[in-house]
Amino acid sequence: MNVFRLLGDVSHLVAIIILFLKIFRSKSCAGISGKSQVLFALVFTTRYLDLFTSFISIYNTVMKVVFLVLSYATVYLIYLRFRSSYDSESDTFRVEFLLVPVAGLSFLENYDFTPIEILWTFSIYLESVAILPQLFMITKTGEAESITTHYLFFLGLYRALYLANWVWRYHTEGFFDQIAVVSGVVQTIFYCDFFYLYVTKVLKGNSKLTLP
């Protein structure tokens, strides 16, 4: 555990809590892509199957359980509790265009051809693109509430901090997880355009993000 990894995990947790509280307190999921949230729940489910097979640390176990519970709670809020506020007409990204290639790639390029390892690989690849329905939705509507942009900022920052963590781990312990690193770079690239808008617009005091 290094500072980049810890800050990355904290950033990830903050992102998920921000989104959950935004929906819970406002009793509305307006502007939020339910599809992206289902994909993230699928990411955690397929990645954390090792909860049943290997123990790494108390920290690791607790964080995994928290991420799983919060991701499913968020999906519950969007599709059941506050379903009437869900903007399904703007959430039109075709997720099969993500799921099919990602599933195919996870069978082709993995560390071990076992179910749990293929599912782990699937989760890494899927995570790198899971935010696309949300970004697509913002592009389509042309705007996002500032609280939604804070969520996206911390969610993007998390993987960027993991990149620093991987550089650190490579130099200090020779650790190199090619699948995670390549996917992490791809994932972070998807946020770059958003980061630019976030810094130039939201942090300068605009109440919401509107696309130029």
Partner: peptide, 10 residues
């Protein structure tokens, strides 16, 4: 690397 590994990251 093609060895199965323990995934210690989240």
């Amino acid at each position: 690397t093609k060895e199965p590994m323990l995934h210690d990251e989240l």
